[in-house]
Write a protein that binds this DNA or RNA. Structure first.
Lengths: 331, 331
DNA sequence: TCTATTTGTTGGAGCGCTCTAAGGCTGTAG
DNA sequence: CTACAGCCTTAGAGCGCTCCAACAAATAGA
């Protein structure tokens, strides 16, 4: 496993180490004859450059550090996928750590990522205090996904939750609904803007809002609906898809039909919502795009193309499926 | 962003660079007085060791390369999570690449990972030919997840698909089913052992097998069921959860009840199956465990504790929910 | 023909660290 | 007062590479 070095390739090709370096970096100032010889020698030896040595010598890194709270969550997995796609296109590699939604673990993860002197750092929905983020930002450009910040040194990429929920409310209103309840995500990330968006949209339509405390799980959605059974709205806007699926199942258990008796809208457009069995009307967050923009924000800073912070607020879109319909005419 | 080096810390603490190095590596042969002075200086300067320089100098790597076909898939995301957990416990970091199920892209990804001279390489369901894997294994220990191999240099970690499907068939037989069909995963990864397991289990019970061509998607499951409507079995064993959910939705569209008229079993225990709305009886693959074992296999080789290949075949388990019941007594 | 360029190639220093071998300092014994 | 452990500490070489300055060779301009 003693891998060949540049020196070995140089010796075999009968040139200097520096020339091999030039060839490996694709420099134009090498004669075709030498280039071919070097490439041949490298091929025969099975040589490939040592990324870490290269990084050390050039004082530049082609690594982006990524801290993700939780890979179980399909949301983050897709964001990472988007990050990886853009990074790959530009010859960057990802080094990845999970923070497990614990500030202590996240801090450790941050330190570990920083020890690789990454060109940039993408933090997906981190829970550490802003001070830690600011400190990290002194070491490398930082972009935050699904978390906002006022720090001048960090970029942020979020979806516009207010607008997303407004899309859902507008859709229901246009179907004729007036009694529309919101199952609230509580302290969950992005729950606040979603609630704000609901209240604003209802006010804009001159309708009375009704916020019901709930959480980001199907069990939470079911529980909230059971509390609603005495005085049912004609439509429900859930804080996310899981919550919506729970709500639907509780409605059906109570002998009600969706969307016959009650319309339900989710949020996130998870793979769950897309299943024909579920076929949930929901709001799509462009997850992959979130990751792509995060990577691009980082690369812009790396290349020195920008110093001012950027605040992406992506437009979510409504995906209409089978859980919404006009309300029944009742007394 | 010019970060302090060991030299700076040494100067500030009034000691040599080598002594700082010893402190950073936690060597016991440093007096308490000096250790404290070094730690203090490091703290004040905000110094943290440079992982790449360290790796280069020590000729050892604390990085594990991970190639994942596709992060969208929750299966892989959870395996990566398991890998990360074990790696983290042992002070290793993950560097990650996606192969996109294309041999060309996977080869690129492999080369890129190898350029970091990782201590080990975990390939999750790779599609490259065995020869490429063998070549990679010459550079670093390799463990394959969800793909088998006969190569002596590589370890493998898989779930026992034959056994998993047998679990499903046994469960249905014990409920009284005799006409049990299998919706086959076609050329999909692990589809073959699952089919084999079905055939063997049916034979063991003296029942006539019925394999229906399908694929790993809900649309595929629905289509397969529609082809079955003329001569329906009393139970269906799907190749995975998505397929099972599609099958259920086609059954319900045809006016049939699950599990009243037909029982359905999935495979994989995705988060989908666990939803109360779906509540699918399915076979659980210990995904996180798959990742953990993969990381451990790598670490054993890294530490030189083992040279013989290991072939983990994890026991799946049956998760009984609401889509299976005894068959209706019919003529 | 001789001096300027240009073009291609090279040695050597140095990136931030580890590691080995050798050095300094204490303390105790002779 | 010297000798010799022992324990800390250090100088220095080197990991595999990049980059700069210097140089040789080929071409151009006068």
């Amino acid at each position: 496993m003693a891998r060949p070095t540049m020196e070995d390739v140089a010796a075999r090709a009968g040139v200097s180490r520096a020339l091999v370096s030039l060839v490996m970096r694709g420099s134009p100032k090498v004669s075709d004859r030498r280039r071919a010889a070097v490439l041949k020698a490298a091929e025969e030896l099975g040589y490939s450059p040592h990324a870490m040595a290269r990084s050390l010598a050039s004082r530049t890194s082609h690594v982006l550090g990524v801290m993700v709270s939780d890979l179980h969550n399909a949301f983050f997995a897709e964001v990472v996928d988007g990050l990886d796609a853009v990074a790959g296109e530009h010859g960057f590699d990802l080094i990845l750590n999970t923070g497990g939604r614990s500030p202590a673990r996240e801090r450790r993860a941050l330190r570990s990522l920083l020890s690789f002197r990454p060109a940039g750092l993408a933090l997906l929905s981190p829970v550490v205090p802003a001070a830690d983020i600011g400190r990290a930002a002194e070491q490398a450009p930082v972009v935050l996904v699904a978390r906002s910040s006022r720090l001048a040194a960090v970029d942020t990429v979020n979806d516009d939750g207010e607008r997303g929920i407004a899309l859902a409310v507008d859709h229901l209103v246009s179907l004729g609904h007036e009694r529309i309840a919101h199952l609230d995500g509580g302290g969950g990330s992005q729950a606040a803007p979603r609630r704000r968006g609901y209240l604003a949209a209802m006010a804009a339509h001159g309708l009375a809002p009704r916020v019901v405390g709930s959480e980001y799980t199907d069990v939470g959605g079911a529980r909230a609906v059971r509390g609603l059974l005495g005085d049912l709205p004609t439509a429900i806007v859930s804080c996310n898809d899981f919550n919506a699926v729970g709500a639907i199942s509780a409605l059906e258990e109570a002998g009600l039909r969706v969307p016959g008796d009650v319309s339900v809208v989710g949020y996130d457009n998870t793979s769950l919502a897309a299943l024909r069995h579920v076929s949930l009307t929901t709001v799509d967050q462009p997850r992959n795009e979130l990751g792509r923009l995060a990577a691009e924000a980082l690369l812009q800073r790396v290349r020195g193309e920008r110093v001012a912070p950027v605040r992406h607020l992506l437009h979510p879109s409504l995906v209409v499926r089978s859980t919404t319909a006009p309300p029944v005419r009742s007394a």
